[in-house]
């Protein structure tokens, strides 16, 4: 079973994501901000991270930088989620090391398609 770490400061969004991911046969873990997410990754890296971009404690961008600098052996794939769809914004996330992006709110098919693209579904 593949594992997915859902990183979002909204409990509701985490719950929705968890529900979808479980129907896609993922084992789901949750983190409420970038810092918690980094700890979770250092502990046991997941296969993929669903990463919210705007979080209070450590933003998605800061998290990606920290992940890059960390010495995690197997870097997880990162799908970042936003409500923005500006080109500059998306490019910045890709340059920072995100593998894919998905707009909120997303449905099962969309998320599944993105997980397939990064090779974990």
């Amino acid at each position: 079973m593949k594992t997915c770490l859902v990183v979002d400061d909204s409990k509701v969004i985490r719950k929705v994501a968890r529900h979808i991911l479980e129907t896609l046969n993922f084992e789901v873990r949750e983190a409420g901000d970038g810092r918690e997410a980094l700890d979770a990754c250092l502990d046991t890296p997941p296969d993929v991270i669903l990463l919210d971009w705007n979080m209070p404690v450590m933003s998605g961008m800061d998290f990606l930088r920290a992940l890059k600098d960390s010495d995690i052996a197997q870097r997880p794939k990162v799908v970042f989620c936003t409500t923005e769809n500006g080109m500059a914004y998306i490019r910045a996330a890709i340059e920072a090391g995100a593998d894919e992006y998905v707009m909120k709110p997303f449905d099962r098919e969309t998320l599944e398609s993105k997980l397939q693209i990064v090779g974990v579904a």
Binding site: N85, M103, T110
Partner: peptide, 23 residues
Amino acid sequence: SQFEIQRGLPVRRMVTWFESIGG
């Protein structure tokens, strides 16, 4: 639309081949 573009199109191809216009 945002919905259609997300189906199956990898983000790198999206930023290479598409322009974001009015949503």
